[in-house]
Design a protein around this nucleic acid. Structure first.
Lengths: 214, 214
DNA sequence: CGCCTGATTAGACCAGTCGTCTATAAGGGG
DNA sequence: CCCCTTATAGACGACTGGTCTAATCAGGCG
């Protein structure tokens, strides 16, 4: 009766391998054949699950953001830490996952935004919605951090939490983009430092190194 | 005897039309045919001027950064303004040129960085060198602005001018990337505001609107 | 004028693109 | 047992991709 688990098996495998390959080479540069061969899925099946390459791209982005948001939610609610600490843990994790070249850890938003937003209106909208939700989630934590006192009150002078979250997210987007160019972590370290500055935090507040809760 | 102007005529035309088209659609998504037809250059000629599409991409980026740096140099040395004003004029100009969809005003660094840096090591290096030069030029102006007193002295607390320039450039890179997603100027306005904050400047210091020198 | 040399172009080439289409296989329900 | 929907399988079409060889052209010199 519930048919999605059955179809979802193959469909999800296409999405997963597609995410790795497209996350590495981009959208236009990758052909369906390459993905399908890697996923060991015949071509005929592809068009059973997706009506076109563009529709597949949409599903890919939706799937990606869905996972990413769940993962972020978990990180921003980990127990035994203040909201500010959780936020810093989020960005420290971003830095640690983006600087080395883990193929499956690539951020699709960074990789595909520029290429895809001029190519497909539908994919652009998925990107827009996804990034908006991430920023909104960050803003929520920023507000909570201001409320629980783990952020200096002077932060709110700069504007609303949503604005601050927007700025910080874009800062990290740009840092990740430049890290792709330089292939080192310098851009991300600069972003982390700027994050401390924009949040009016003491730069030596530790947590620059990611750590599990003790 | 000087043959480059003759060959350069066709070569440059390929580069110019290529910049517009690739700046709009990306690198992999555009075929040589499209560029050459638009430039009214026969296909066979292409490989007389460029040894491959990748080599063309390199030349394209070099040409772009060369123009961009010259334009930036001019803006950062315009007479009758303090160094801080010139810097703010630079970013205000960035905002004004990126938010609307002028096809030839597209920033190739934003458009191509993610796509190309994993695709071609040679193109990646051109991007790296180009962005490094821009950042270095910005750092030079930041230092000058600190020296002539048009920036608050408190700015230097955050670190060296090069670090600050790196952060600001990446901030704008990310803002432009997100502006491609949202198709409005909100991300760029946020970046301008954050720029004021990172430079410890009064947000109401005018110059948020671009203006010609009076 | 005739020839030669190098710059320029025309178009063939094949691998690869997305997407379509027919044919087969699997899995229940009646 | 048949039927019907869902899913798999991959050949095929029309087309475009980047690349390269072979022909053309321009023009200076003998």
């Amino acid at each position: 009766m519930n048919m999605t688990p059955v179809t979802g098996d193959v469909r999800q495998r296409i999405l997963n391998t597609g995410q790795v390959i497209i996350g590495g080479k981009g959208f236009s540069a990758v052909g369906l054949n390459e993905i399908l061969k890697a996923a060991e899925v015949p071509k005929g099946s592809f068009y059973h699950y997706f009506s076109s390459k563009e529709a597949f791209g949409e599903a890919l982005l939706e799937d990606y953001f869905s996972d990413y948001l769940a993962q972020t939610e978990e990180r921003l609610t980990q127990p035994g830490a203040s909201h500010a600490e959780r936020l810093l843990s989020y960005w420290a994790h971003w830095r640690d996952t983006q600087h080395h070249c883990d193929p499956s850890g690539k951020c699709l938003a960074v990789k595909l935004a520029a290429e895809v937003s001029d190519l497909s209106e539908r994919m652009r909208r998925v990107l827009q919605h996804g990034t908006e939700r991430i920023i909104a989630r960050l803003a929520q934590s920023i507000e909570a951090a201001a409320a629980d006192g783990s952020l200096p009150q002077s932060v709110n002078i700069h504007g609303s939490a949503l604005e601050l979250a927007t700025t910080l997210y874009q800062l990290w987007l740009g840092a990740s983009l430049r890290a792709k160019i330089t292939r080192d972590r310098v851009p991300l370290d600069a972003a982390l430092k700027a994050t401390y500055a924009l949040l009016n935090l003491d730069p030596n507040l530790s947590l620059t190194q990611e750590r599990t809760q003790s």
